[in-house]
Write a protein that binds this DNA or RNA. Structure first.
Lengths: 183, 183
DNA sequence: TCTATAGCATACAAAATGTTCGGAAACAAC
DNA sequence: GTTGTTTCCGAACATTTTGTATGCTATAGA
């Protein structure tokens, strides 16, 4: 990708993130974004058709990193859903999030929470689905597989939400333990 | 409240609900709403300052009914969180929702799901909070109260979401059992 | 150095927002 | 029924936002 294109794309993302931190998604206008990004109006529309598309692209970009990392860890013989395993994928997700090396924590903690946690859950569901066997042992036989799958993704996402909205006081190990105790 | 005022207020709600069923919240315009409600532009703004306010008012109105009913059942010696109890509040919530006497099921099943399930969870959390003692017995002592409280509300809400998004095939008794098995 | 591409400023049409006004109809209270 | 109040309407209006078009400049990458 052309360096110029990369740069403006990034400028738009940054401006969008900064605005999401202060205003609700619905109130943010393209005008505000391009002003903050210091980018021409036509340029914006050359990159993204609408504000919604911008949001989607941002989500894809951010979550790709997180879940790529989670995928990678699988090869290093980690366990997706073993309470005892000290290096479960869930723990790693919390650890990775806590580092806040990219701006994902900003977005997951901002007033527009729901927008991103929704995407997060979808991605997580796919991740869990691809390793269904690893955690079916924990399931009560009376529960349908589809329900159980969704339940794990939902519980993790809601645990994450709780952690974020309560100031992230607990270390990753503790909040992961809460998750395991709850699910 | 003046009858005229009641009528237009309702017409606006109905139009809004019908539109939410077909379009995403962000795309719905005040113009569409007033056209469908057959109401003057100035009239709309006399009732609601913004589209957001309309949404909030709608949520308040609808959920008030549901949770009022749930509150009432308490007096009839039901149990909030007893697996065995055949008349737990949770079962009653599912039963009440299945009847679909008001338009709440339409809204909870539409593409704008998240908007309403978020409000639902908030309301439910308050309900559970007010009866904290009734279900603390089920809690693992290592979990903080605040986490547990949130977890129950979240799990019920996500169970409800799953039920809705999978066509509500299970009878209230079954889906309530799933909830109890999961939480 | 050359060429394709990205960006800029500006201008513009179209749509949506939010406000104002005077007159008509419905209401409530007497 | 009369009266005073409230609500609605229609229409007009200013403002904001959206999305597109254009001609020119700067830069990337070969």
């Amino acid at each position: 990708m052309d360096r110029r294109r990369r740069k403006t794309r990034n400028a738009i993302f940054e401006a969008f993130i900064a605005l999401l931190d202060r205003h609700s998604y619905g109130q943010i206008t393209v005008g505000q974004i391009i002003e903050r990004a210091d980018v021409g109006r036509a340029t914006f529309y050359a990159h993204f058709e609408t504000k919604e598309e911008l949001l989607k692209a941002l989500c894809r970009e951010l979550f790709a990193h997180i879940f790529e990392a989670a995928e990678g860890e699988e090869t290093a013989h980690s366990y997706l859903f073993d309470c005892q395993a000290p290096d479960s994928v869930f723990l790693h997700l919390f650890q990775h999030l806590q580092k806040d090396d990219n701006r994902i924590l900003t977005l997951l903690s901002c007033r527009n929470n729901d927008l991103f946690l929704g995407y997060f859950k979808e991605e997580l569901r796919e991740l869990i689905k691809s390793r269904e066997a690893q955690f079916s042992g924990r399931k009560d036989p009376r529960l349908p597989d589809a329900f159980w799958l969704d339940h794990i993704a939902a519980t993790f996402t809601e645990t994450l939400r709780w952690w974020l909205e309560n100031g992230r006081k607990e270390p990753p190990e503790t909040i992961t333990e809460y998750f395991y105790l709850a699910v």
